[in-house]
């Protein structure tokens, strides 16, 4: 990311592209876009990544997380047709940079989060994936799976608590 932000390094971008483009496209297709819309939208997401590379803060998000937020916003743009309001930016000043120890700590946390997600019981993992693919509210998920709202809500809460616990 640093090579893209500082040197407009196209080789570094191609590497990120090879890793993330097929996943971003998969995410968009799981979210309801057809193949050609997902391809076009994925290209927009990856182009945005290039343009906004200087905004990326490695002490607060992994590259995957950051790309997820770009893909989510583009998806809302396209499928729900509105520009989602974003919180005020918290940028690094010109002389400051993220602390390397913070960056490394976040990378470790991200690794543990991925492991915890992989270790979840299948049903809980699917619920979480559904919540992130769909623009389904909890009640719509309940309607889709025939589960009562209270149960599904506490399942998601429990899954997230486990994730949090395994990160601490």
């Amino acid at each position: 990311m640093e090579a893209i932000a500082q040197d407009q390094d196209r080789k570094a971008f191609a590497e990120l592209f090879r890793h993330f483009a097929p996943r971003v496209k998969a995410f968009l297709m799981k979210s309801g876009a057809d193949e050609s819309l997902a391809e076009e939208c994925m290209q927009d997401v990856m182009a945005t990544l290039w343009r906004k590379a200087h905004m990326y803060d490695p002490s607060r998000a992994s590259v995957a997380t950051w790309i997820f937020t770009i893909a989510r916003n583009r998806k809302i743009d396209l499928l729900r047709r509105y520009a989602r309001p974003e919180p005020e930016d918290l940028p690094w000043g010109p002389e400051q940079a993220p602390d390397q120890a913070d960056v490394i700590a976040l990378q470790q946390d991200t690794g543990r989060l991925a492991q915890a997600l992989a270790k979840l019981p299948e049903k809980q993992r699917e619920l979480i994936q559904h919540a992130y693919f769909g623009d389904l509210s909890h009640s719509e998920i309940a309607a889709a799976t025939g589960l009562p709202l209270g149960t599904i809500k506490s399942r998601i809460r429990l899954a997230l608590e486990r994730l949090r616990h395994s990160m601490s």
């Binding site: 998000a61 997820f68 946390d109």
Partner: peptide, 8 residues
């Protein structure tokens, strides 16, 4: 959002 990153 980090969970979203892990899902992605």
């Amino acid at each position: 959002e980090a969970v979203g990153g892990a899902v992605l």
